[in-house]
Write a protein that binds this DNA or RNA. Structure first.
Lengths: 181, 181
DNA sequence: CGATTATAGTTGCACATGGCAACCATCTCT
DNA sequence: AGAGATGGTTGCCATGTGCAACTATAATCG
């Protein structure tokens, strides 16, 4: 697994060959990007399903744990918004995490309706472990790429996330209205 | 956090001096990468759920359609492998796509057990439309990056996908065996 | 102040997804 | 030809998720 790097290293280090056309084909690149991102998503969606159970949480629970761990005491509704899920689903996820001892519910002192979610020490530890394990993997992959690519990739990922996220917000949560034909 | 990175960095980079870390922020970058990729995945998993219905297929069906469209006549088993799904699930997805008229099953002339999946014209058109729509979006996002960075990022994505994919293959498909603590 | 409305959360229900196991049909190998 | 292997389908079940109904609390308005 760590052995993939050898062959393509020089190519990567050398960067893109300076061809006559500096933008050979943005469309082709976009298509490559689409297909590689799709491939990655396919794998990751499966990998995450598989991996999550190693940590005794589902994928959604893992996302929720991360969100709660980073977002401080978080209302169920906010968790739902952050995960793009219905509040009922968020409530159930919170319940599952609570049962497993990774978060606990506490009533908001200022608003009796609100239930605030907080990570327990165990939850914080689990979140950190997942984070570290994945970061370690990513570090292994990133280190073979030049700094501009690494930082560019991170920026691009962020931009993708925010772009899609705003799109989702705009579309209102239910099915969008694109016509079939 | 990820402690392996520093050590292996020198090996790969071929003689990074151990004095000051030549990649002082690799760990930080890996963490950024993790968090931005996670954010993207959260959004995309939702967005895809939402978007797919616009095209009258589920997320898995969309992946399957793409795989069949690109992979030529494809056995159900191969589709399952490509999507990291059980063959029964692949069979059902194929059935759904067949019902919708996007693929059709045909017995393999050389092997009576095998069912080959092929896209119909409608399926090919749908796949192309999805592909074009997304590629267009990606082109808009990519065009702000220099060409070398773009190609580097695409390569990075590919490597991510292949690395994770090989990991999944190696792990055998069922749940891995990492202990909880 | 009391009544109405809005908001946060939980729960009941239904549906979609996906895996496992059983099963059948076909192929391959002695 | 018989035994086992392989590809595919189906039954069954667990999980995840949204919608709607419901409860409890807050906010607003008379």
């Amino acid at each position: 697994m760590a052995t993939i790097s050898a062959a393509s290293d020089q190519v990567i280090a050398g960067g893109a060959p300076p061809e006559s056309n500096p933008h050979p084909s943005l469309e082709a690149e976009a298509h490559d990007f689409y297909s590689s991102l799709t491939d990655l998503l396919k794998v990751v969606q499966f990998r995450d399903r598989d991996r999550a159970c190693c940590y005794d949480v589902s994928v959604a629970q893992c996302y929720a744990l991360q969100t709660v761990a980073e977002g401080g005491p978080l209302a169920v509704n906010d968790l739902a918004g952050s995960l793009f899920l219905d509040k009922s689903t968020a409530s159930r996820i919170a319940g599952a995490l609570e049962t497993k001892g990774y978060v606990h519910r506490r009533g908001d002192p200022d608003d009796g309706r609100v239930v605030r979610l907080e990570v327990t020490p165990a939850g914080a530890a689990l979140n950190r472990r997942i984070e570290d394990d994945l970061s370690e993997e990513y570090a292994r992959l990133l280190k073979d790429f030049p700094a501009e690519v690494r930082t560019g990739m991170i920026r691009l990922l962020r931009r993708l996330a925010t772009t899609f996220s705003s799109r989702v917000d705009a579309s209102g949560g239910s099915c969008c209205t694109i016509q079939k034909d």
